[in-house]
């Protein structure tokens, strides 16, 4: 038996799926070949580590935790799925915003400024600012 065949068959050998002549040949090769023997040891260790991880069981309360979460999901789902609430919520928001704008405009129109109002003489409004010469130009002359 050569190394390639030994490597191919070693997995079955580790899993005790080999029998008869092939098993004897693999065993003989593993005793002679240091490289294949080392590879066999490495893979046996890997198999045992994987088996140890496989032996770990899920938490005892995993089912309960899942069912609790599903119950909560259903509760929230039911609350959200009440049709009148689904329609009412946006309607209420839009109505309250419209009411706020309407009241704002109403108060703005009702408001009349009281107290001292600075009155501007009519002549002032007739002055055309564009025709007034710049002070800088005057000072340069």
């Amino acid at each position: 038996m050569n190394c390639q065949i030994c490597q191919q068959e070693s997995e079955k050998y580790r899993e005790e799926k080999l029998s008869g002549d092939l098993k004897i040949q693999v065993e003989a090769h593993l005793q002679q070949c240091a490289e294949c023997a080392e590879s066999y040891r490495i893979h046996s260790t890997a198999d045992s580590i994987i088996n140890q991880e496989r032996a770990i069981l899920p938490a005892n309360d995993l089912t309960e935790r899942i069912m609790d979460r599903i119950e909560k999901l259903e509760d929230t789902g039911n609350k959200n799925s009440k049709p009148f609430l689904r329609v009412l919520q946006p309607v209420l928001i839009i109505t309250s915003m419209a009411a706020a704008i309407f009241i704002g405009v109403l108060i703005g129109n009702i408001y009349k400024p009281t107290g001292t109002v600075i009155s501007r003489p009519v002549e002032l409004s007739l002055i055309d600012d564009a025709t007034i010469e710049s002070v800088d130009i005057l000072s340069n002359e």
């Binding site: 069981l57 899920p58 995993l62 089912t63 899942i66 069912m67 599903i70 119950e71 259903e74």
Partner: peptide
């Protein structure tokens, strides 16, 4: 019948 989901959870959790 959400409680029936427990059957599937118990069967497939491992």
């Amino acid at each position: 019948n959400q409680d029936k989901y427990r059957i599937l959870v118990e069967k497939y959790q491992t």
